[in-house]
């Protein structure tokens, strides 16, 4: 659940929260692109650290750290898989290059998690839906998307209650071997699914009762528009992109092992 906690939006007022979600999305895409064009660790670490002031400005450090902690399991998995594949495919030797390559991959993953987490922590589902609508995504899709996002925490809470209710009837989730443990979750999953379906049917009826889909063209109470902050972020991210492309093309970036002088 901790990964979800790290993505859950909380209402805080900060310059970052007020940005246009479309701009924040462009930011995420550019960070993604830059993280992928580099495959050495120093620029990736820079990219990781560069976003920290952004997180501080948004005042979501705590939740952000939690999402990183939640990603640690997957990160260490990536690290060890990389080491193992290098080890087995490159002649059964473990050298500094292998370790640095694995660390590079892991850092890249953490950069992606970081920017994703900042995006979801600072963008309300309502804003996101609005952004989708204004980028001409059909309303059915944007509505389905926002509803899904909004129900994730509700479902997580419900799953907790169901687990409690079944534990109170003597269910021990951590008992038995691997297959038995998976089976232990059946009494949790069935009520969860049934209740989600029931809830969605109720939601559908409530929506139809309020004339959902009555007209093709909907109007909105709020409209998104680019403000000064958005242009600043646009300039910053474009700058980062240009510097990154230039570096990749013309600047030889040293590796850590070259700096330290190990082979």
């Amino acid at each position: 659940m901790s990964v979800f906690d790290g993505l859950k939006f909380r209402k805080v007022y900060s310059p970052i929260h007020n940005l246009d979600p479309r701009m924040k999305f462009i930011y995420v895409i550019i960070i993604f692109a830059v993280a992928i064009i580099f495959n050495t660790i120093i620029p990736l670490l820079t990219l990781f650290l560069m976003q920290v002031p952004f997180v501080m400005l948004a005042r979501v450090q705590k939740q952000w750290l939690r999402s990183l902690r939640g990603a640690m399991f997957l990160a260490s998995f990536i690290f060890f898989i990389n080491i193992a594949t290098n080890f087995f495919t490159q002649g059964y030797t473990l050298n500094a290059k292998n370790i640095e390559d694995a660390a590079t991959m892991t850092t890249r993953f953490l950069v992606l998690v970081e920017s994703f987490s900042v995006f979801f922590l600072t963008t309300s589902p309502d804003h996101l839906g609005l952004a989708l609508e204004q980028t001409k995504v059909p309303y059915e899709f944007s509505f389905a998307f926002t509803t899904a996002v909004r129900f994730v925490p509700v479902l997580a809470e419900e799953a907790q209650t169901i687990m409690d209710a079944q534990k109170a009837r003597g269910l021990e989730l951590e008992k038995g071997n691997f297959l038995k443990r998976i089976r232990n979750y059946v009494p949790v999953l069935i009520p969860l699914i049934v209740s989600a379906i029931r809830r969605s049917l109720e939601l559908a009826e409530a929506m139809e009762a309020r004339a959902w889909g009555a007209t093709k063209k909907r109007t909105n109470l709020y409209a998104l528009k680019f403000n000064k902050g958005d242009y600043v972020l646009l300039a910053l991210t474009t700058g980062v992109l240009i510097v990154a492309v230039y570096t990749v093309l013309y600047v030889p970036v040293p590796t850590i092992r070259a700096l330290l002088g190990v082979p």
Partner: peptide
């Protein structure tokens, strides 16, 4: 599980346990 033998707990919403 051990405590539940002596303490039966009925939750508010039956749909949270029927499966």
């Amino acid at each position: 599980a051990a405590l539940a033998r002596n303490v039966g707990f009925v939750f508010q919403n039956p749909d949270h346990q029927l499966f």
